[in-house]
Amino acid sequence: MRKVLTFENIILNLKRFWQKKGCLLFEPYNSEVGAGTFNPATFIRVLDEKPWKVCYVEISKRPRDGRYGENPNRTQQYYQLQVILKPAPKDIQKMYLESLTSLGVKLNEHEVKFVEGDWEAPTLGAWGLGWEVWLDGLEVTQFTYFQQAGGVDLKVIPVEITYGLERIATAVQDVGSMFDLKWNNDLTWGDVYRQNEVEFSRYNFEESDPKLLTELFDQYEREATRAFKQGLVYPGYDYAIKCSNVFNLLDARGVISISERANMIGRVRSLANQAAQLYITSLPGSTEEKQEKND
């Protein structure tokens, strides 16, 4: 049998690749998030004009996507490898293609297709333009030039590259199910996570307590607001993230109506926008001052 690149080595290769491109190797956030974008290393750091290059793995929790471990390609929890480069380098597309090569994907033996995708994170007041990247038809990455975050127009445009690690690994290892991915030479992804999937699917869909979650949402929202009033960006934003996760849990439980859903998304977005505003206004030296200096 041919030697496969294990899941953990895929992660290592990508980290090494981006480290060589000058990225700071960061770590996941300590709270449940739906995407690596929520991590302050992305959401907060893209707001200012200072250069920032970072690479980290994030656990993405999407309660609605749970399938009790029965769907080969869909789970309520998976890994993303998140790369932020600010400002976006002009040869970024080439860099990205090289990162695929670092995983043994030869461009002359595969099709890499950039499929138009306008990206939007409504709970973060963020949007950008870019693509889904398909490797032989499988979406393995989202590639986005951020235009706005926390409702703020970004002055320096960052590029966000988000690899779906399990997706790309199934392509690299040539397996049909993410549960069959070789994590290392002894264990599969399924060995590590199947039970977790079964239990969380049951919890998310059947057992979570909507009343408690609704209360938590309200309380987290209040605490976020209180922290912002004290001028505390990170602690306030931390509670905004918690709101977002609680919202996802409620959504999965199927207890929020269409219009209530829009309302709650709006409330989380408002918190994210406050965090962004507060961060910008608390930067040393206002934009005007800086401009004078430059002149």
Binding site: P72, N73, E111, K113, L135, D136, G137, L138, D174, G176
Partner: peptide, 22 residues
């Protein structure tokens, strides 16, 4: 219909088939 080298044909066939099946 894809846009790559002819050499990619087998991988493309397998990849798209897998995605469609899923």
């Amino acid at each position: 219909v894809f846009s790559a080298k002819k050499k990619a044909l087998q991988n493309v066939k397998k990849g798209y088939t897998r995605v469609v099946e899923a």
